[in-house]
Write a protein that binds this DNA or RNA. Structure first.
Length: 903
RNA sequence: GCGAAAGUGGCGAAACGGCAGACGCGCUGCGCUUAGGACGCAGUCCCGUAAGGGGUGGGGGUUCGAGUCCCCCCUUUCGCACCA
């Protein structure tokens, strides 16, 4: 151990040590309790950013903590290495996606190692390697066998100029990202996974997740799946054998229907309009609406538009003839693609009826007395189109509804659904907003879909034994045309697995969410060549005990992986349906921005190049650019990004402060789910703290090892009894152990670090006191050294999850060999808090009079209720406030406070 | 518009319904230094010399006691957005 703290030296040394001793490599061991600590795998862009650093620092702290508590901890990492950036690099710079990806992985792996994250690197997986995506394809075949994947036409974003498929990002704003042409929708045959088949289970199983997942994420998933209960009702079309099926949640309002409205894409439309004079007009209208939708910007509101088809449908409840309309506000892919329009009791239908002056018939009246109905007096006349100002969407009592009148909405919904079912024209139904998962991508850099098209046999799956269908080494990356694979003749040309005649491969690849849906199962058995993973190994390690990642994956990734797990359960690979027990969604990393206006455009400067001036209160008063010493504008705090130039490079931070300090700051500065505001001053504080601990250990290492000052460190009860300062440090040590332990269990890393800082401060005070002790008997020194060693060792071990390199160095400095994790299988190193020692001997009890603080009592910790009461009433200061008044009540909370209530 | 979460010093933040602001940053003063983006010590919510008073977005309520629980409002952030 050097006298001074040299992070780069220590960090390199211990990284090498961990590698050589295989400190983080683990195997399934049924005799030990496991803990699966998982962080979301990164896309290998080539560089770690601060968001990654935060994510992986959180995970690593937890992994270390659990190891020190004696768990067998699986802590792996891998690469989400398929996807667009590699392909874009290929298009733009003519590099090979595979080489580009592999190079990036090499670079990022080096960065991970520099950060000292404790991964079992033998388990690393990468989505783009055939050994991995072989199993994506295998799963595809399994799902195909079970009817869980199917093919249908579906629209993609299409650039008519470059004749290529664009992703949503590439077509944002409705224009092509490269050429600026208006993006169109184009229908292509694509593969879909039937996620909707599991909709009910995906909703229902969320009950299991309530304890361990953020409420926010569950809410988002619930809204995404959006289960809705209602009923189907079939409306027979006049002069036709066709029926129009609608979905409604308000069958109780059916007597108020004034029209049936179809989505423009409704499949029955063509048949219904056969021979109609309006056919051409309607078709044109439908096409226009569809086009309008394609170029729609995300936030845009669209005016309701519709057309009367001239057809009529019969309301099966009332027998009434209703006109059939087509309108842009009805969605084809929700419910039945058709609705009954009830303007009096639905806002959208109301708006539509207003626009086209359709009759509005009221069939529900409010019955609640304590709640305002929607601003409108009950009317019993039928057509209220002139009086009604808003739709009345509340439940109420049915009126104008034939035999159903006078019932309450809730009852009517059940009874009318049952009636529809009995009469065979509908019935109760549940629908979901959740749609099937489209997994076809017209891209090169993904797992090929293992399907073949044969003229004779049609669509034929590849035989399992012929997997993987390997990606060719390269393709033409022009950025135009359909899937790049379509241009690779050797790839496309194949033979039919069934009839052996020439056939053509599917040239699409799979969505990268496929790769990330099951990767953490593969970590359990990453080299398996015969199966995605060994069931027994997965059974030991999974489900994941703690998953850590960004909130941006709240819906898609986490929903798909939940689906995938259920699918794997149904094909017998796992025995549970939920893959992740606890989820932590960490906040973004943000920083200050600085800019100058230049001809209306903002030019941003990196915070590293700016000097900030503050006033006496610490408020920022101005900022200047260091290079020219002229002022810059202080902008908002924003997410670190290229566009605002406020990012910091983890490599530079590690160079300047060391990985340990970066990690300590990252975990200390904010609770994990909050935003983390980057600050170089803050990281200075982290280094300062580490340095203080380090020099304290250095100073005491010799003393603790040197026996000449009074024998081996040991407790002398007499000394302890007589010297409160020794007891005080012990108390602080044990109190800190208890605090840090509970904070870790709650993932409150910031308060853990704060507690360690307090312990360090106490150690510092104790050390200062010791310097003043010149003459003392040997048993005093022995006891003092025992107490100090206890404090320092606890401090070092509890620091390991945050600053593992420094902790290892100091642990060794305290005379321990073989590293902190030595014998971890048999001996948990985490210190044990002794509740008796952690207790304070003397307490300061606040005394309130009528809830206001009026005095404090110094009492022994075990002082009872009655004594506290007496002491409070007798207190000099307190008496000044109660004199001359009646004491009505005295509330005594032992160990806590006394409140005296006076009149 | 609908839904959810959150508003505490100059800043990041603490606080089983029980002393608001732990811990850290910044700032102020002092010491040590030729010097310091080093180190040490002290101070730092507001008003007041003090005693004391006020203070957790605003207003009400429950309670002996509210940052914490309930109701209304304001603001911010996030998610969803014609979902019948």
């Amino acid at each position: 151990m050097d006298e001074k703290y040299y992070p780069e030296k220590i960090e390199e040394k211990w990284q090498k040590f961990w590698e050589e001793t295989r400190a983080f490599e683990v195997e399934a061991d049924s005799k030990r309790q496991k803990f699966y600590c998982l962080e979301m795998l990164p896309y290998p862009s080539g560089f770690l950013h601060m968001g990654h650093v935060r994510n992986y620092s959180i995970g690593d702290a937890l992994a270390w903590y659990k190891r020190l508590r004696g768990f067998n901890v699986l802590h792996p990492i891998g690469w989400d290495s398929f996807g667009q950036p590699a392909e874009q690099a290929a298009i733009k710079r003519n590099v090979n996606p595979r080489e580009w990806t592999e190079e990036n992985i090499t670079q990022m792996r080096r960065q991970f190692k520099r950060l000292g994250i404790s991964y079992d690197w033998r388990r690393e997986v990468a989505a783009h390697r055939p050994e991995y995506y072989k199993w994506d394809q295998w799963f595809f075949l399994k799902m195909y066998e079970r009817g869980l994947v199917y093919r249908r036409m579906s629209p993609v974003n299409w650039c008519p100029n470059e004749k290529t498929v664009l992703s949503n990002e590439q077509s944002s704003g409705g224009v092509c990202w490269r050429c600026g042409w208006a993006v169109e929708k184009k229908d292509l045959e694509q593969w879909f996974v039937r996620t909707t088949q599991y909709a009910e289970e995906l909703i229902a199983d969320m009950a299991e997740l309530e304890a361990g997942w953020p409420e926010r994420v569950l809410t988002m998933q619930r809204n995404w799946i959006a289960r809705s209960t209602g009923a189907f009702v079939d409306f027979p079309v006049k002069d036709s054998t066709e029926k129009i099926r609608v979905f409604t949640t308000r069958i109780d309002t059916i007597y108020g229907a004034n029209a049936i409205v179809l989505a423009p894409e409704h499949p029955s439309l063509a048949k219904l309009l056969e021979g109609s004079t309006l056919q051409a007009d309607i078709t044109r209208f439908a096409a226009r609406v569809r086009e309008g939708r394609a170029t729609l910007k995300p936030d845009e509101e669209v005016e309701k538009e519709g057309m009367n088809t001239g057809l009529f449908a019969t309301n099966p409840f009332s027998g009434e003839q209703l006109p059939v309309w087509v309108a842009n506000y009805v969605l084809m892919d929700y419910g039945a693609g058709a609705v009954m329009s009830v303007p009096a009791h639905d806002e959208r239908d109301f708006e539509f009826a207003q626009k086209y002056t359709l009759p509005i018939k009221q069939v529900i009246v409010p019955v609640t007395h304590d709640k305002e109905p929607s601003g409108f007096e009950p009317q019993l006349s039928e057509d209220v189109s002139t009086e009604m100002l808003n739709a009345m969407t509340d439940y109420g009592m049915l009126v104008n509804s034939g035999e159903w009148s006078a019932r309450l909405s809730q009852d009517a919904i059940t009874e009318m659904s049952a009636h529809a079912e009995k009469m065979n024209f509908g019935g109760a139904a549940v629908t979901y907003r959740l749609r099937d998962w489209g997994i076809s991508r017209q891209r090169f850099w993904g797992a090929p879909i293992p399907m073949v098209y044969c003229e004779t046999c049609g669509i034929v799956p590849i035989a399992e034994k012929d997997l993987p269908v390997e990606l060719p080494a390269s393709a033409e990356f022009t950025g135009t045309g359909e899937s790049p694979l379509a241009g690779v003749v050797e790839f496309v040309t194949t033979t039919c697995p069934k009839c052996s005649r020439p056939a053509r491969r599917d040239t699409d690849t799979m969505d990268t969410f496929v790769d990330s849906s099951w990767y953490f199962f593969r970590y359990c058995d990453p080299q398996n060549a015969d199966a995605p993973f060994d069931k027994e190994k997965a059974k030991y390690w999974t489900p994941v005990d703690q998953y850590i990642g960004g909130i941006e994956h709240a819906v898609m990734h986490l929903l798909y992986t939940r689906f995938w797990t259920k699918m794997m359960r149904d094909i017998g690979l796992v025995s549970f349906g939920e893959p992740v027990k606890n989820l932590l969604t960490q906040g973004m990393v943000v920083a200050e921005t600085f800019y100058r206006e230049d001809e209306g455009k903002r030019v941003y400067f990196n915070p590293a190049d700016v000097r900030v001036e503050r006033d006496a209160k610490g408020r920022i008063t101005s900022a200047v650019l260091i290079s020219d010493n002229r002022a810059v504008t202080v902008g908002d705090i924003e997410k670190m990004s290229k566009s605002t130039n406020n990012g910091v490079d983890p490599n530079e931070m590690i160079d300047a402060y060391g990985a340990d300090a970066v990690r300590v700051f990252t975990l200390f500065a904010a609770p994990p789910e909050n935003e983390l505001r980057w600050s170089e001053a803050g990281i200075d504080g982290a280094v300062r703290f580490l340095r203080r601990v380090y020099s304290m250990i250095w100073k005491w290492a010799d003393v603790l090892a040197n026996d000449s000052l009074g024998g081996t460190p040991q407790i002398n009860e007499t000394v302890l009894r007589n010297l409160p300062e020794l007891r005080r440090l012990r108390q602080m040590t044990h109190r800190t152990i208890a605090r840090v332990t509970t904070d870790f269990e709650r993932l409150h890393f910031n308060t853990s670090v704060a507690a360690l800082m307090e312990l360090m401060n106490a150690v510092g005070d104790f050390d200062a006191l010791q310097r003043e002790v010149t003459e003392a008997p040997p048993e005093y020194h022995a006891t003092a050294r025992f107490v100090m060693r206890e404090a320092l060792e606890a401090l070092v071990i509890m620091l390991a999850p945050f600053a593992p390199h420094a902790a290892e160095e100091m642990w060794a400095g305290l005379g321990h060999t073989g590293g902190i994790l030595r014998d971890a299988e048999t001996q948990a190193r985490w210190p044990q808090a002794d509740a008796v020692l952690a207790r304070k001997e003397e307490l300061e009890i606040p005394v309130q009079v009528n809830g206001k603080l009026r005095g404090r009592l110094r009492v022994a910790a075990e002082t009872g209720e009655e004594d506290l009461r007496q002491a409070a009433l007798a207190d000099e200061r307190v008496r000044g406030f109660i004199e001359g008044r009646d004491v009505v009540k005295v509330i005594v909370v032992p160990q806590r406070l006394v409140n005296i209530v006076v009149s």
